[in-house]
Design a binder for these strands. Structure first.
Length: 376
RNA sequence: GGGGAGAUACCAAAGUGGCCAACUGGGGCGGACUGUAACUCCGCUGACUUCGUCUUCGUAGGUUCGAAUCCUGCUCUCCCCA
């Protein structure tokens, strides 16, 4: 993998770049749709490619390991062949499941023992086997196995947790470097910087990660319950330490506003379930603000769902119709909103790149942040 | 014509003397959702001057300290037999 920094915004930390993988190029800043189980929920690969114009999508180690399982994954020849997506894929390691499925797992120095949320069976994840699993899934970018602590963690908890994450990171690096890709294209490993909302821990974590000299770095453990201002300041603290010539990936974030604020602080890559999950639940993000399509006021609004939208669903379907579909729990409603939201998120980062390259990002961002948060 | 069952809030449906402005679903309205156990979850849903008051359980009357619940008349609905 190769990363080339292209332009920097004169008035903020924003920058553009180009990531090159064996499955193609990624322009940064980029938003990566989440496809946990090998599918971006409700969206065909063709729509993802041609309509949303996604450049890279995610998969998830924990979920794909449980279902369909590694045997199938290997027989398929990796996730790209299995799901028919030939652009880059990034897999999360299961570190987030340490957080989101906290009631179903136990942590030890050695690893994490999960009780399957599907059938209750036990599965032990270690930094080593998580590297092996991601080799088998065949993601272009694989993530270190970490503990994602909650945003409300105390300093003491955060410090101990970070220690574990750092020891696990070293084990991940070792295993990764000792093993080879399985399907003939290269893979790269991103460390994850933790440390909760504590500046000294974040600095320590970033320095430790940077010293490992990888091709890219992630910032994890944010947007997990801490105040949004803390998230922004932690991004600043970490990006101050991380090498400038490597991509920075803010995991799991966020709202359109979060994304612009993070780009402004030097983040290059994002992923979030929000456009798809909230879309399925009837929330539509637009340049002019947020629409809750379930609200009664859209019942007889026969205007296009987003006149400024870039995807075919935006012009083709009306608000009234989409409201009807969501109200009726019709699958098509969830699909339309998901496609729209993803296309919007990809438009947002594309436009951010244009503004950065023009040197007008900072002022554009200020205007957009106000508009994007409006409730329509 | 004979026999039987029933009428409860927007719908369906509990409740059969005080803990009932009335269980529970659905519908309606609103909210949440940030490396996806999520087409999920959470509120509100008689009126009002809303820590309280007023009017409700087909309808008119009655019994009782007290009725959606007991009694009587009326209206309507459904089922079975002819």
């Amino acid at each position: 993998m190769e990363f080339k920094l292209l332009n920097k915004d004169p008035k903020s930390g924003a920058r553009t770049g180009k990531l090159t993988t064996d499955h193609g190029e990624i322009q940064t800043p980029i938003f990566m749709p989440v496809g946990t189980l090998g599918s971006v929920k409700g969206v065909h690969q063709r729509e993802l490619r041609e309509d949303v114009d996604a450049e890279i999508i995610l998969g998830n180690t924990y979920h794909l390991y449980l279902r369909p399982g590694l045997e199938i994954m290997e027989q398929a020849g990796g996730l790209h062949k299995f799901n028919g997506w030939d652009r880059p894929i990034l897999t999360d390691s299961g570190g987030f499941q340490v957080f989101s499925l906290a009631d179903n797992r136990k942590l030890t120095e050695e690893g994490a023992m999960f009780r399957s949320h599907i059938d209750g069976s036990k599965h032990f994840f270690t930094p080593e086997n998580v590297m092996d699993i991601q080799r088998t899934i065949g993601a272009d970018i694989i993530m270190a196995f970490d503990e994602c602590p909650p945003g409300t963690a105390t300093y003491e908890y955060a410090k101990n947790s970070l220690g574990l994450t750092q020891r696990w990171l070293e084990r991940c690096v070792k295993r990764f470097d000792e093993t080879e890709p399985k399907y003939g294209y290269s893979q790269t490993l991103f460390p994850i910087v933790q440390g909760c909302v504590y500046k000294d821990l974040r600095i320590k974590a970033a320095e430790h990660a940077a010293a490992l000299d990888r091709e890219g770095y992630a910032i994890g453990g944010l947007a997990v319950g801490e105040p949004v201002e803390d998230m922004y300041s932690m991004i600043e603290v970490v990006n101050e330490v991380l090498p400038e010539d490597k991509p920075r990936y803010l995991m799991g974030v966020g709202t359109p506003v979060n994304i612009l604020e993070a780009i402004s602080r030097g983040v290059d890559m994002f992923d979030c379930v929000m456009p798809t999950r909230n879309g399925r639940n009837g929330m539509i993000f637009t340049q002019n603000g947020i629409i809750n399509i379930k609200n009664k006021k859209w019942a007889n609004d026969f205007s296009p769902i987003d006149p400024d939208g870039t995807s075919f669903v935006d012009q083709h379907y009306t608000k009234a119709y989409v409201r009807h579909l969501i109200h009726s729990k019709e699958l098509l409603g969830a699909q339309i909103c998901s496609i729209h939201n993803l296309a919007f998120y990809l438009w947002l980062v594309r436009e951010a790149r244009v503004q950065i390259n023009q040197g007008t990002f900072a002022s554009w961002k200020d205007v957009m942040v106000k508009r994007l948060a409006t409730r329509l």
